[in-house]
C-alpha cells in the first residue's frame, strides 16, 4: 500500500504523456493536411466570421471594462507615490502585451472552442465524420484545417480591436472620472507605445487561436458515447484550451522578454 501514491503518480504521468502524444499527432496531421489542396475556402470564410465577427460583442465588452478598471485601479495604486501620470502607458502596455490577447483568448475559447467541440463531436457520434470519409472527403482537410487556419488568422485581428476598445475604456475613465486632459492622455498613450508591445500581443493571439481551434477539434473529433460524450468533449475543450493559453502565455512572454 505504501506504493499506492507512486502508482497513481505513474499512472497519471502515463495518461498525461499519452494525451500530449495524441494531441501532437492530431495537430501534425491537421497542419500537414491543411497545406494540401483542396482548400475549402467557403469553410474558412464561414469559420472566420464565426470566430471573428460574431465574437466582437463579447470581446469588445470584455476589453472596454478591462481598460476601464485598469485605469481606475492603477490610479488608486499610483496615487500613493504620485505616479498618476503613468496611467496611459500602464493601460496601453498591459492591454497590448498581456490582457488583450489573454482575455480575448479565454473568451473565444469559451465561445468558439466549445462550439467547435460540440459541432464536431455531434458529427462524430451521428457518423457524419464517417460519412465525409465515404464521400472521399478527408475530415482533417474539410473540418479541422479550416478551423485552425481561420482561428490563427482571425484572433490577431480580434486582439487588435480589443486593444483599441480597451484603450478607449481607459481613456473614458481617465478623462471623465479622473480629470485627465484628453489630448495629453492620448499623446502619452501613443508616445510610449513600442512596436514590440503590439507585435508580441498579436503573435500571442495567433498562437492562442491555434490552441483554441486545436483543442476544440481534437476533443470533438475524439468524443464518443452520445450526448454525454459530446458534453464532456465540450467541457474538456474549453478547460484544456484555457490552461494551454495561460501556460503558453508565460513562455511566450519569456521568449519576448529575453529578446
Amino acid at each position: 500500500m505504501t506504493l499506492a501514491p507512486l502508482t497513481l503518480l505513474g499512472r497519471m504521468t502515463l495518461a498525461f504523456m499519452t494525451l500530449v502524444g495524441s494531441v501532437t499527432m492530431f495537430a501534425t496531421q491537421a497542419v500537414v493536411q491543411g497545406f494540401r489542396p483542396p482548400y475549402y475556402r467557403q469553410q474558412i470564410v464561414r469559420q472566420m466570421l464565426e470566430i471573428g465577427y460574431y465574437s466582437l460583442p463579447v470581446v469588445g465588452l470584455t476589453a472596454i471594462f478591462t481598460g476601464m478598471v485598469l485605469a481606475l485601479q492603477s490610479y488608486t495604486g499610483f496615487a500613493r507615490f504620485s505616479a498618476e501620470a503613468a496611467i496611459p502607458q500602464v493601460v496601453v502596455v498591459s492591454l497590448t502585451r498581456e490582457l488583450g490577447p489573454v482575455l480575448a483568448g479565454l473568451m473565444v475559447a469559451g465561445r468558439v472552442g466549445a462550439a467547435m467541440a460540440a459541432e464536431i463531436g455531434t458529427m462524430r457520434v451521428t457518423e457524419q465524420i464517417d460519412a465525409l470519409t465515404t464521400l472521399s472527403t478527408d475530415p482533417f482537410r474539410y473540418l479541422v484545417a479550416p478551423r485552425l487556419i481561420a482561428a490563427v488568422l482571425t484572433l490577431p485581428l480580434l486582439v487588435l480591436v480589443a486593444d483599441l476598445i480597451g484603450v478607449l475604456g481607459g481613456y473614458l475613465v481617465a478623462v471623465y472620472k479622473l480629470d485627465f486632459n484628453d489630448l495629453t492622455y492620448l499623446k502619452n498613450t501613443i508616445d510610449y507605445l513600442q512596436f514590440d508591445d503590439v507585435f508580441s500581443g498579436v503573435v500571442k493571439a495567433a498562437v492562442f487561436g491555434f490552441l483554441i481551434a486545436l483543442m476544440g477539434c481534437y476533443q470533438g473529433y475524439n468524443s464518443k458515447g452520445g450526448a454525454q460524450g459530446v458534453g464532456a468533449a465540450t467541457t474538456a475543450a474549453v478547460v484544456s484550451a484555457s490552461i494551454l493559453i495561460l501556460t503558453f502565455n508565460y513562455f511566450l512572454t519569456e521568449a519576448f522578454f529575453a529578446r
Binding site: 458529427m123 457524419q128 460519412a131 465515404t134
Partner: peptide, 16 residues
C-alpha cells in the same frame, strides 16, 4: 477505392 463505395448510414448521417 472510396469512390467505388456508397454508404447509407443507420442514422442517415446527413450533414445538418
Amino acid at each position: 477505392v472510396m469512390k467505388k463505395f456508397g454508404m447509407l448510414f443507420q442514422g442517415g448521417a446527413l450533414f445538418d
